[in-house]
Amino acid sequence: MIPFDFIYCRPDTMEDAYQAFVQLQTEGKNPYYYAGGSEIITMARAGSIRPGAVIDLKQIPQCRVLSLDSEELHLGSVCTLNEVKESKLFPLLALACGRIADHTNQCRITLGGNLCGTIRYRETCLPLLLADASVTLFGRQGLRTVPFTSVFDGRMRLDAGEFLVQVHVPRKALQAPHYHIKQTASEKIDYPMVTVAALWQDHFLRVACSGLCAEPFRSAEMEAVLNAQNLSGADRVRKAVELLPQPAYDDVEGSAEYRKFVFQTILEALLEEVTHGPL
């Protein structure tokens, strides 16, 4: 039960969505873009947000795209995690989607919602960070397509009123050897203690991580160490754990020290795999 009222809009075009947002914003309605809804509904029920309006993006054709062309995979922002997973077009992203929340919720939670929401794990970002993805956004100046990393630094940095339309993944990354490991406190259906995704591309191991720090990250320094041929596996892992971009996260699910320990054991397993294939 959400105790307060809000306005519900379901535009058919990107322009209408943006115009509705601007209009409602001007009216002081505190509008939210809405896709799968799970985060907005739970937070509204709990009283942590109070939107005066929600703008449902699910009818906008451009946001629903799921297609592969000769260059890239295009994923609309309102594609559900389950649709992305079942399409099997980007196996690493499929693995990430398949471990977020539970299957029923995967049929509702959208790619855009996972990336743009406030729940800090945003695990679908990991494959995108590794794959040199780009994103198309719609805002004040209409459409713009930019590298994912230019608008994502652990969370989405969008202009006011701007929303995510599509994600584009270069074909090259789609079938690259990859690795995805998610460890939880104990129950499988849970937020990550640590999730590590890795992609082997151009003889280089790319690694991104969620859960470990306050926000997900991919770190060039850490990757350099992990790829350092002159170091032993154990040394690489030890140095990598020292290179966290932010302090390890500490909350009711797990302590900072333990998260670092989990990260270390995952990296050890990862390097072991890299050495022995299939990467």
Binding site: M1, I41, R45, N82, N105, C107, R108
Partner: peptide
């Protein structure tokens, strides 16, 4: 739980399971 965690409110929407506590009626 009304929080999408327990699944007791699951129904099918176009043949797929959804937790009806996480869907607006207007949707």
């Amino acid at each position: 739980c009304k929080n999408g965690d327990c699944g007791a409110c699951t129904i099918l929407m176009d043949g797929w399971p959804v937790k009806s506590c996480l869907v607006l009626a207007v949707e």
